Simulated assay, not measured.
Amino acid sequence: MKPTGIWNADLGRFAAIASHDLKAPIRAVTSFAELLRTLYALHLKGRGLTYLAQIRINGYHMERLVDDLLLYSRAAVASRAFAAVDTATMVQNVLTRLKPDLGDGVTVTLINLPAIQGDAVQLDRLFQNLLSNALKYRKPDPLQIVIRAQAGPGHTWQFDVQDTGQGIEPEYHQRIFQLFARLHPREVDGTGLGLAICQRIVQHHGGDLWVESTPGQGSTFSFTLPRLPQGA
C-alpha cells in the first residue's frame, strides 16, 4: 500500500493539474461568449443574446464547480501543520465577508467560541459554508443564527450552528453530505459540494459532523474539533 504522505502528495498534484486543465477551456468559452456579446450585441436578436447569457452563466457555474472539487480533494490532504485558531475572530471575519448577503432581518449570535487546534484556512471555509447555507435556505421571516461551543467528547469542542430557516426533512439528513447533493437544484444557486466539503474538513481534523433539523423550524449543524494542547 502506498504511504499516506505520498498518496496525499499525488492527490494534491492531481487536483491542481485537473483544476488548471479543466478551468482553461471553461474560461475560454466564457471569454468568447462575452466577446461575442460585446462586439455583436446590436446584430443579435433577443434569443441570440439569451443563448450567450446562458453560456456565460453555465460557464461560471462550471468554474465554481471545479473550484469546489479542488477544495474537496484538498480537504483530505495534510498540507499545513495544525496551529492555534481563535474561532471567535475567525467567525467575525467570515461575517464581514458575508455582510452583503446578511441584509436586514438576520441576527447572528456568537456564544463561548474558543481557541482550538486546526488548519485555519480549512476552518475558515467550514464556517463560511455553514453560514452561507443558513442564508441560502432562510424563510421570509427574520433569520436568527446562533453559533456556540461546548465541551465535546474526549479532548474536543462541540460547535453548533443553529438557524431558524426552512429546515430539512429527516430522510435527507444523511444525503445532504454526499457529493452533488442538492435539495433545491433550481431555486438556490450552488454546486452541491458545500456540505461535502464541510464534512471532509471536519473528518480531516478527526471530528464528526451531523445535523438535527425540523422542517419549517430550522436546522442545527454540529461538529467536533480538537482542543488546544494543555499549556498552549
Rank of each mutant, 00 (worst) to 15 (best):
L11Y: 00
A16S: 11
T191A: 04
Q166L: 13
V211R: 06
M90C: 08
G46W: 01
D208Y: 03
A75K: 06
Y137F: 15
L65T: 09
I147S: 10
I197A: 10
R13P: 00
E171K: 14
L110V: 01
Y60R: 15
I145Q: 01
L126A: 12
P100M: 07
P3I: 09
R148F: 02
T156H: 14
N93A: 15
V121S: 11
I168M: 08
H155K: 15
K45T: 01
H173C: 00
S132K: 10
M90Q: 14
L228A: 05
L52Q: 05
K2F: 00
F127P: 10
L225T: 13
T38W: 00
R227G: 03
K23V: 14
L69K: 01
D189T: 09
R125F: 00
W7G: 06
D189N: 06
L143E: 02
L225D: 02
Q203C: 01
Q199Y: 07
A232H: 14
H184P: 02
G152I: 12
A53W: 01
R148C: 07
P215L: 13
V94D: 03
S73W: 00
I145G: 03
I116K: 01
Q217T: 05
N58Q: 11
V85A: 10
G167V: 09
P226R: 12
S213P: 11
Q230C: 06
